[in-house]
């Protein structure tokens, strides 16, 4: 087996309560290689953030119930890491940058204190002076002017773009090999979005990091990612390189998603949304979660979970219709829930 920087195989996350069980993530598998940007795209509630939170052990369990065939970091089995050793991985080897830095940064501590905490936790041998110097270097790196002074500011004294930069500075503090960016530009205006994405790309290239980008912005994905996974209702529908998935999309959901973009239609034409709404994840459906909204759906779609097939254009597609066309319709489904 090739050694990927980070790898998830058949991840399932269910939130169990006495009243109901919500299947937030169903059979998600993907990997990311060194120096690569992998984008996970999906609408709110599609399970993209939950999958990464599960991998990072940020979900409270119970109610979260997490299973996976494999979770690996450079070949190392992450599930075998004991909870009391987990801190050596999180922040250090795999770091996370969250959306909406105003709430993701602690409002009552200075930005410098919060960046410095990375070193205080993971580099106990560093002196206060060294930590301060390293934090200033990080703020300079992410393009915050007057870093010596801004280090003693609180998050609310920063602008939105600067807060996100500070958040990124914290994420890259220990030179992680994998950086997970969860909608890093959502709360920002368009010009600042572009700056933040440029910064992330530049840092990734310099440090040969692997970047996992969680977003709902297809435009952003097209510009920045190497490979992409399209998620819907907790399932990866289609995954491959940008060229494969966005250039020759095969899954009806991907087709619908691309067709619904305003850029996809002629000026003056009506928008073409995907009709219907995402399924209730608490109601266990055996079939394809997209079947009720799918224009190509067949009877089998609502009865059996679709198989994942490798299509000639190179990507993997989880769909009965595509599988049948590819002549693999009779193959046993890889994932059943």
């Amino acid at each position: 087996m090739t050694r990927h920087q980070f790898e998830l195989s058949n991840l399932n996350v269910a939130f169990r309560s006495p009243a109901q069980t919500v299947h937030a993530v169903r059979g998600v598998s993907f990997h990311v290689d060194k120096g690569e940007t992998f984008a996970i795209v999906g609408e709110s509630g599609s399970g993209k953030t939950v999958s990464m939170m599960a991998a990072m052990r940020l979900l409270q369990s119970p109610p979260a119930h997490i299973t996976a065939d494999a979770m690996r970091f450079k070949g190392e089995d992450l599930q075998a890491v004991r909870q009391r050793d987990w801190w050596r991985y999180t922040g250090e080897k795999i770091a996370m940058v969250f959306q909406d830095a105003l709430t993701a940064l602690n409002p009552v501590y200075t930005v410098g204190w919060q960046i410095g905490e990375m070193f205080r936790v993971h580099r106990p041998q560093m002196t206060r002076r060294e930590i301060r110097a390293a934090s200033i270097a990080l703020l300079t790196k992410v393009g915050i002017p007057e870093p010596e002074r801004r280090l003693d500011d609180y998050p609310h004294q920063f602008s939105g773009g600067m807060r996100q930069r500070a958040m990124i500075a914290m994420g890259i503090a220990l030179d992680p090999e994998v950086l997970i960016a969860d909608e890093p530009t959502t709360a920002l205006d368009v010009t600042v979005q572009a700056q933040i994405m440029d910064l992330l790309q530049q840092l990734k290239d310099e440090r040969q990091m692997s970047l996992i980008l969680i977003t709902h912005d297809l435009g952003l994905v097209a510009e920045t990612a190497d490979r992409v996974a399209i998620m819907y209702a907790g399932t990866v529908m289609e995954t491959g390189t940008i060229r494969q998935v966005l250039g020759t999309p095969r899954h009806p959901y991907t087709l619908g998603l691309l067709g619904s973009r305003p850029q996809a239609i002629e000026k003056g034409d009506k928008l073409r949304p995907i009709l219907g709404s995402p399924p209730n994840l608490a109601a266990a459906s055996r079939g394809c979660p997209f079947a009720p909204r799918c224009t190509a759906a067949k009877p089998v779609c609502s009865e059996q979970f679709p198989p994942t097939v490798h299509v000639p254009s190179g990507q993997d597609v989880t769909c009965h219709v595509v599988a049948e066309e590819a002549g693999q319709g009779n193959r046993q489904p890889e994932v059943t829930t």
């Binding site: 940020l58 991985y89 996370m96 969250f98 909406d100 602690n106 936790v121």
Partner: peptide
């Protein structure tokens, strides 16, 4: 969210409770 951030940094749970949340 800032508690989630603290956990993702590898901050020990005791500090998450008494330093990040309690303040």
């Amino acid at each position: 969210p800032y508690v989630r951030t603290a956990k993702s940094k590898g901050v020990p749970f005791r500090s998450v409770l008494f330093v990040h949340a309690l303040r």
